[in-house]
Each structure stands twice: as structure tokens, then as C-alpha cells.
Write a protein that binds this DNA or RNA. Structure first.
Length: 206
DNA sequence: GTCATGATACAG
DNA sequence: TGTATCATGACC
């Protein structure tokens, strides 16, 4: 599978968010190669975007990675319990990122199932299969992504993104972003994207 | 639908 | 020292 090169990430986060749909996230951990297809993303445009952690050029240890070059993993902890994975976009000193909101499990389904539920994939109910990775916190649990992945080079060999199946065609749905009620005028920006009809999308009706 | 959970950031 | 958050699971 063809790993995406640095220049793929060197664009604004809105464009990158659309182009990441259908791509594969691969995480090599403890000899397991866990793979998921990206089916839902959100763009965070940085200093001018009130929903972004880097709004007004806020620069802290948490946001620091977004100020570097594109193609690195920005992982943050949310509500004290869950991790979310973002892809750093744009260029140095342009702190933009794409939040990966949902994936479809592709490979090592049994390993993914055991990470989420502690039992085999073929023992799961239908509702549990969908819930494996239909949200930003869930997909990190499913693929074993945590704060130790903060700053991982997505052009590297541990946590990276590759071309998916380019024969698969899909329609892209656009909507408002999820759970950013604090973001004033930015609440309404149409910067969430997902693959139409994919059952792993977190909120398919918005 | 409601609610508890808790690391991080920030205001004061 | 208090308050809010790019979420989820367990409840009703």
C-alpha cells in the first residue's frame, strides 16, 4: 500500500479533510498491524477559527505540534478520558489540523475487537460492530492510539496513512462540525465531511 | 433523553 | 482554586 508523502499534507485543512476520506490509517503496535479506513473528518483552520485549539495562535505544549510541518499526528486528551487523533495540515507557523472522527475497521478485526471489548470479533452484536470506531475517541481505542503517538511522523513507519482502494468511488457529505457550541460564528462553518452511506459515520443524519 | 467521568487549559 | 472542554458509556 502506497504511503502518502509529505506534500500530500501541505495544504489547507479543509482541502486535506476532504482528501483524507477513503485513506487508510495504519498503526503498528506490539507486532500488530491495525488498519482503518477514514470515513469522517473535520477541518480546524487555526488562528481565525474559534473552534480550533490553535485559535488566536494559542501555543501550549498541547498545541505545539500544529506549529511545525504538516504530516504529523496531533493527539489530544478530551474530557479527561479519551484521546482524539488529528493530522497536522498546511505549513510551519500555520497551525491547522484535521480531526479524524470515524474509521471503518479494515484489518486485524479480531485484534481491534479485543482492544475495544475484550472479546472476539465474531462474538460481537451488530450494534457493537458499528460502535467499534464510529467516533473520535472510539477509533483511538480501536487502533491503540494514545498520547505516546503525539508527534508521530505520518510519513514514518509506526503510525502512518496510505492510499486506500482507489477503485472505490463515494459521495462526500458536508455538514457543520460536532460539539463546538462554544465557537460562536464558527459553529455554522460547513467543515465536517463524511462518506455518504458509510455505517461507521458518527452522526449520519447531520 | 440525562448524567458521571477527568486531563488540560485558562481566568482570576 | 474554579470552570469549561473537538466524548463516551451507562443509565432512563
Amino acid at each position: 500500500m502506497q504511503k502518502l508523502k509529505r506534500n500530500f499534507y501541505e495544504k489547507d485543512s479543509i482541502t486535506l479533510a476532504r482528501e483524507l476520506l477513503g485513506k487508510y490509517i495504519i498503526h503498528n503496535i506490539n507486532g500488530e498491524e491495525l488498519i482503518g479506513k477514514i470515513v469522517e473528518t473535520e477541518a480546524y483552520m487555526g488562528p481565525e477559527d474559534k473552534a480550533a485549539h490553535s485559535y488566536n495562535n494559542r501555543r501550549t505544549p498541547r498545541t505545539e505540534i500544529m506549529y511545525g510541518p504538516a504530516g504529523y499526528a496531533y493527539i489530544f486528551r478530551i474530557y479527561g478520558m479519551y484521546n482524539c487523533m488529528n493530522v497536522v495540515a498546511a505549513h510551519v507557523d500555520e497551525p491547522q489540523a484535521v480531526l479524524v472522527r470515524a474509521i471503518e475497521p479494515i484489518s486485524e478485526l479480531n485484534k481491534i475487537s479485543i482492544r475495544r471489548y475484550g472479546k472476539a470479533y465474531d462474538e460481537l452484536k451488530r450494534s457493537q460492530i458499528i460502535s467499534l470506531s464510529n467516533g473520535p475517541g472510539k477509533l483511538c481505542l480501536a487502533l491503540g492510539i494514545d498520547m505516546s503517538n503525539y508527534g508521530d511522523d505520518l510519513c514514518g513507519d509506526r503510525l502512518y496513512i496510505a492510499e486506500g482502494n482507489n477503485d472505490e468511488k463515494f459521495d462526500i457529505v458536508t455538514s457543520k462540525r460536532i460539539n463546538i457550541d462554544y465557537a460562536e460564528e464558527a459553529i455554522h462553518y460547513p467543515w465536517r465531511f463524511y462518506i455518504k452511506g458509510n455505517k461507521f459515520v458518527s452522526k449520519p443524519h447531520i
